[in-house]
């Protein structure tokens, strides 16, 4: 497996780019779009295959955009800003479908349910995951991380368990969220029940992703510069990969499940071979922290090759060929 740099677009936004994801292709639009969110308070859509071409700029947020998410149908997408204002919009027409409000610091990473029925939002200082129904846009569940028994009522629990990241399992039955103290909590979605913690990280867990090939396997990236691989059901740590020299800010699993990519504040993007449990490649084309990496989902007309996009504080978007 290999990454080959295709294109690096400097000054894609006016300021740091903080989030990136791909909007899958669908019947009306036979190609995937890249969605990026930036500190310049805008969200941009890019047509990215061999070149990166701006499709549209969405404005409307009042502070920097911290997270973007795309519905699996490719029709709608969501963006969240620092003041916890989530805007859900139609991808092709940019009409606002819903706005979800939470107290500031209670919306971070977001992810749509694999079937698209729900949207999970990492609830920051509320120490919970908020789950929204995507047809009525009502809050259907708030999965709370339980307080540890030993804690006193005025313990700084909101800080310790501050939820930064969230991930759906591929079958949609489990939700995992990563906290500031390095623990990952796993929930049973249908029963709305907390199952267990996954331990091993020492510092905030900023990114989570389930393996697309093994529904038990969960990858996590943390500020302690490690990428962990957990058996999320058996609550055991089954692999720990080191190689970044600083915080791991974002990870994504390749669609074939054989590799993961990670972006770090050491300014590199690394590709990890899961069989070798090691970084096989390190891209150094960014000149500042890499906040987002995303593999293009399969599908779309005439699309054979894999693509990886990375976005960074240096305002640039990089596109790689993954094979």
């Amino acid at each position: 497996m290999k990454l080959a740099g295709l294109k690096s677009l400097e000054s894609a936004h006016d300021d740091s780019i903080w989030a990136a994801t791909w909007i899958p292709a669908n019947d009306t639009r036979p190609f995937s779009l890249l969605l990026t969110g930036s500190l310049d308070e805008s969200v941009r859509l890019w047509k990215a295959d061999d070149d990166v071409v701006l499709e549209r700029t969405n404005t409307g947020h009042s502070l920097g955009v911290v997270s973007v998410a795309a519905h699996p149908s490719g029709v709608i997408a969501a963006s969240a800003s620092l003041d916890s204002f989530v805007r859900v919009f139609d991808v092709d027409s940019n009409t606002t479908i819903a706005t979800l409000e939470a107290p500031p610091s209670e919306s971070w990473q977001m992810q749509f349910h694999p079937k698209g029925t729900m949207l999970a939002v990492a609830g920051g200082s509320s120490t919970s995951i908020k789950v929204w129904d995507t047809s009525t846009w009502q809050l259907v569940a708030s999965l709370q991380i339980p307080r540890p028994e030993s804690s006193k009522p005025n313990d700084k629990i909101a800080t310790k368990k501050f939820v930064l990241s969230v991930a759906w399992s591929p079958d949609g039955r489990r939700l995992a969220c990563g906290s500031m103290d390095g623990t990952i909590s796993v929930f049973d979605v249908s029963r709305g029940k907390f199952l267990h913690h996954l331990e091993g990280h020492l510092m905030p867990v900023r990114s989570l992703i389930y393996s697309p090939s093994d529904p038990r396997v969960l990858f996590s990236g943390s500020d302690d510069a490690h990428i962990h691989m957990y058996d999320a059901e058996g609550k055991s740590l089954i692999g720990s990969m080191s190689g970044h020299s600083s915080w791991v800010l974002s990870i994504d699993a390749s669609p074939d499940g054989g590799a993961i990519a990670s972006g770090s504040s050491d300014k590199t993007v690394k590709l990890w071979d899961l069989n070798m449990r090691a970084a096989v490649q390190s891209m150094t084309n960014h000149s500042d922290m890499v906040w987002g990496v995303a593999f293009r989902p399969p599908g779309g007309a005439g699309v054979r090759s894999g693509r990886l996009a990375s976005v960074s504080d240096d305002k640039s978007i990089s596109l790689y060929d993954y094979s």
């Binding site: 740091s16 500190l39 502070l63 620092l82 610091s105 920051g124 200082s125 501050f162 930064l164 500031m180």
Partner: peptide, 18 residues
């Protein structure tokens, strides 16, 4: 302003940053 926002993004739990 951007710098402050960046800081808050890095440590959203940090009360001073907010």
């Amino acid at each position: 302003m951007r710098l402050m926002q960046r800081r808050f993004r890095l440590e959203p739990w940090n009360h001073n940053a907010r």
